Amino acid sequence: MAHAGFPLPEARVLRYLGLRVVQVVPTILAIVVLNFFFLRLAPGDLAEVIAGEAGSATPEYMAMLRQQFGLDEPLAVQFFKYMGQLSQFNLGYSFRNSMPVMDLILSRAPNTALLMLSSLLVAVTAGIIFGAISAQWRGRWPDALLSAVSTVGFATPLFWVGLMLIVLFSVELRWLPAGGMRDLQNAHTGLALAADIARHMVLPVLSLAFFYIAIYTRLTRSAMLEVQELDFVRTARAKGIAPLPIALHHVLRNALLPIVTMTGLQLGTLLSGSVVIETVFAWPGMGRLAFDAVFQRDINLLLGVLFFSSFLVILSNLITDLVYALLDPRIDIR
């Protein structure tokens, strides 16, 4: 077991990562299989959508489209072809968008990452601050107020928060744009472009972070109240250390471990929440891409988004486990 203040031996870290990667492979395989067959159970396909839009849903035209998209082959043949593509890191081709799925995802992934990481940063920072205030003034009006706001945050749907922010700040006050990622009418560059994107980010980031601020507030409060009852905190009080240094350097520091764990595990729920937020605010990210793929019956694109998202969630969990082991020397990673 590693000792506090010393890094974990490199060989043990590599061995730990190797074992976790071996454990991850069956999980990824199960996700691929379930996604493929569950999506095939949904009614309709890309050929029906295109034929309906063209107003020519004749049997001959439908058969021609299904042959073009490979939908006329047996399901088992389609599955093994799909697995063969994945083995070559090929996510297939989006006939609807006329480009490879990987190129589509890589063009949208940075936008989703920007939205998610900004929302997570806002949620963690605000949640820790609010949770620390609530724990420090337990039983008083700040605690009661923040607890009430947290309860509202848990119960409020993300899309409703987004719509209300649009009504208030875009429609009524006209302070912020209602959607999109940038102003297409102005060819901004450099700092002007960054400022334009930042203005468009405010409402979607606040909407996505609102629910998670409530989670981190309650989690920080509970963790700090638990740490406050431990012996080393009582010893610090007995030594005459002021309450604020005790709260910051002793209580809050040791209460961060569950927050680190929760932060890594929240990536999956952030991805699902981004689908709603990106749709409400017309944000050009992976969530909006998946939403459009569902309605267009673009199975290749939807499979690619689901696979890429699942891989990111598994990777984040792996990194979280390693960071947790580095922060807490009591964790044995043999």
Rank of each mutant, 00 (worst) to 15 (best):
A47C: 02
L315S: 00
S150Y: 03
V161T: 11
M262G: 00
D143W: 01
L165I: 01
V32D: 00
L322K: 07
L225M: 07
F291W: 08
V25M: 08
P243W: 03
I213C: 04
P329C: 12
V49D: 04
V275M: 12
M1E: 15
V152Y: 05
L71D: 06
P157K: 07
A325V: 10
Y82T: 10
N111H: 15
D45N: 15
I331K: 08
M224L: 00
V202K: 03
G273M: 03
L19P: 01
L120I: 14
F291R: 00
T320P: 04
G264T: 12
E278T: 09
L39A: 07
A325D: 09
F154K: 04
E48C: 01
S134L: 12
V21H: 01
V294E: 00
D183K: 01
G55C: 01
L312K: 02
P284M: 07
S222C: 03
S87K: 13
L326N: 13
L91H: 06
Q78G: 06
N254P: 11
P329T: 12
V305R: 09
I128D: 10
P43C: 02
A198L: 15
G131Q: 11
G162T: 14
R218K: 15
L146H: 00
I299L: 15
T156D: 04
G273F: 08
E278F: 07
S56K: 06
T320G: 08
L203W: 13
N186A: 15
A194H: 11
A57V: 11
I105S: 04
F159A: 11
V260C: 04
F6S: 14
D45S: 08
L34V: 07
L326R: 15
G162W: 11
L75T: 14
H188W: 10
T27P: 06
G44P: 08
F37W: 03
E278P: 05
V124Y: 08
M201K: 08
R253K: 15
R96F: 12
D292K: 00
A11Q: 13
G44R: 11
P243V: 04
R140D: 03
V227R: 00
P204T: 01
L184A: 12
L322D: 13
S222Q: 00
N300R: 11
V280K: 03
A47I: 13
L104S: 14
S222N: 13
S316E: 01
T151F: 12
F36S: 02
R221H: 09
L106I: 10
G240L: 05
W141V: 12
R218Y: 10
T279S: 13
Y16W: 01
N186Q: 15
F169T: 04
L41A: 11
F80Y: 05
A76L: 15
L301G: 05
L256V: 05
V49R: 09
Q136N: 07
F281C: 02
Y61S: 13
A123M: 05
T235Y: 10
T320I: 01
W283Q: 01
